[in-house]
Simulated scan of single mutants.
Amino acid sequence: MAKKESSLDRVLGRIESLDAINLTNLAQKLARERAYLETVFNTALEGILVVDEDGVVQYANESGQSMIGLNENDLGASILWRLIPGLRDSLGLKEGEPLRDSISSRELELTYPEQRYVRIYFLPFKEPVGDEDKQFVVMLSDITSEKITKEETIESEKIASILLLAAGVAHELGNPLNSLTIHLQLMERQLKKLEATPASEKLGNSLDVCRGEVERLDGIIKNFLEAIRPQDPDFQVLDLSLVLEEVLEVVGSELNDRGISVEVEVVTEAPIVRADRNQMKQVFFNLIKNAMEAMQPGGSLKIVSRSDEERIYLRFGDSGGGIRKSDLSRVFQPYHTTKREGSGLGLMIVQRIIRGHGGQVGIDSQEGIGTVVTLELPKRNRKLRMLEG
């Protein structure tokens, strides 16, 4: 259905033929339209910014100016990366690199002009306006009180049911696993009584594989239960690249079966942090599993580690189908999943663990291109500030 043409559109269509009086009337009407729209935007509680691809703030409503400490006189000159330190690194942008055409979501702590937590969405315009550079709408929502109230509600109402579910699943899986362990032990004893032959040696190797897989399943169940319970991390100095290697070794056969290539790149120094080894293994396992399930056979997973003066950044980028815009804000909610057999708990567990380590989780996604999940963690020599939830 074609958009209905307004009287203002009709006047603008013949602007070259207007005389001085009509031009004055048009200018006054445009001023009224602008004032009306300014009032609408300034009524919104959310911050609304428009930035170009270099992060220069071209427009900000009153809420946006208040949240990031921006003066109206600085519009067109102030750069968003300076107003919100850490945002550019969180988005994975190098100095001078333009914003990408992807929908991005971040949760960050601001310390100026006052301490608060904000949720930030980057939404690219469909097309550049006129001869201007590509522009992006940036939505800022103050979620400080939400972290105290909403997440406590989730804790009390949903996590209890998750614990009950997990306990039931662990019990139901534990019984057959115990039975498998017992029968594998019996088979191993019988095998030792047989004469050593190439066939018996091959059977022994198969038994070792089966026993290892049973132990791995048992470990997954235990890690799952530990991850969803609010436990304090057992901090130790870790090289996350070594922990990642351990996880990739465990899931290596499944990655090979799917024909998925994995590239790991450490851009700067080794990612040394103070963290709980088992919990970080659970985080990596969940993210890699999500990436595998999002990709078709033959896909690629790239994991990049880099750092700045205070934080370590780990980016998990897959070549899957991406996340729909309508789903992006709900990916951390318990039970929310777009997969037929998904539990909707994986990213919730990831966010819980990373927040327990004083970090944040960010997601960038573009439909048909893929998804990048960014983990931000404090360096080992930086004092942790634990986040609620």
Rank of each mutant, 00 (worst) to 15 (best):
E249A: 15
A199M: 13
E172R: 11
A196G: 05
C210Y: 15
I148L: 14
M1S: 13
E109A: 11
T338G: 00
P113T: 07
L184K: 01
S66E: 14
V51N: 05
D327N: 13
T111F: 14
R116V: 06
I103N: 07
E72R: 14
V40R: 05
T24V: 05
R258Y: 14
L23D: 03
V372F: 11
H357C: 02
V40P: 03
P124Y: 05
G362Q: 10
G212I: 07
L194I: 04
V11I: 15
I143Q: 08
I323N: 00
D52Q: 10
D54S: 10
V118N: 05
G47C: 08
Y313T: 02
I349S: 09
L248C: 07
S104I: 02
A77N: 14
R32H: 07
S66A: 13
G322S: 04
D234C: 00
A170S: 14
L186V: 13
A199Y: 12
V273C: 00
L328A: 04
I143Y: 09
T374E: 11
E201G: 06
L194Y: 03
P198M: 06
Y335D: 09
E5C: 08
R14P: 03
I354L: 09
R100T: 11
Y117C: 02
E310R: 13
N290T: 09
I288F: 12
